[in-house]
Amino acid sequence: MADNKGIMIIAEALNSSLASISKELLGAARKLAADLGDEVSALVIGSGIAGVAAEAITFGADKVFIVDDPLLKDYRTDAWVATAEKVAKQVNPRIILAGQTTIGRDLASRLAFRLNTAVTMDCIDLTVDATSKQLMLTKPVYGGNARAIFTSDLYPQMATVRAKAMSPIAPDSARKGEVVTVAAGLDAAAIRTNVLQKVIAEVEGIKLEDASVVVSGGRGIGGPEGFKQLEELAKILKGAMGASRPPCDSGWVPETIQVGLTGKIVSPDVYIAVAISGSSQHIAGCGGSKNIIAINRDPEANIFKEARFGVVGDWKKIVPAFTAKVKELLGR
């Protein structure tokens, strides 16, 4: 469609700064913009978020649309979709990208249908077809067992992008961009949800998504006690503890440390998988790690196919000996 121009990312603000997923989206958008000869814009929705505009420009936006309104303080589907719809219709972008996040997965799916287009969710690769100039979107399916490539003839072309699948550009504080303020013009009565309370699970130490070393445990750990040992090892390595889904579902560890398709996506330098078999849905969350170290008693476990180093055996024997040796070698 000739009228649709530019690539718009839906940015997210986190504690008044630009969320890392939004920096990644801007990085992806800049690449597409180079292929298409288009410009990149960022849409920032919220309350008291105007400060994020400058950061978005630094990370690659040519234009930033700010919709700042007290009614947009919390993410509420009706308000955010109406706002994004309004800006999208005004800007008429060729491509809209959002993060595969709590906000993005709710917003993008509903917005796509509101705009009479299609969206492909949780993409890990975006390219432009040389002839049609349409997006070719690769996403994991079947719990990570397979990948599928999707396209659509409809505009705007939409995708949500998985965390850490794309790289941000190097921030450049000399970049120039335009900031456009758009009035939300919302009717409070048309917003049918209310956020009554936000409950943040307290996590000690380094955040899982930011840690350069992650020590994760699986079903084979057998109970909450075993995770204390993993936590100690994570502390010694100045890293964070994670888990596959079964320990979270069993209540051994908080749900917020689940690594996997429906949990956190991590890509540390070192990911130590202890008693984790390596289901596809778990690999979806840790497959981007630079080095996976596997400790598992089953030499046929799928995790060894993903790992760089491995030890076959009982974690109850291996983890204490490994922890002791690491302490000795690193002098911690």
């Binding site: 170290i293 760089r308 030890v311 055996g313 009982d314 490994f322």
Partner: peptide, 18 residues
């Protein structure tokens, strides 16, 4: 994958750390 071995599991664990 490079499987790290040793005399026993504890030894393999120490070798992995090294």
């Amino acid at each position: 994958v490079e499987i790290i071995t040793g005399e026993n599991e504890e030894d393999a664990a120490a070798n992995l750390a090294r």
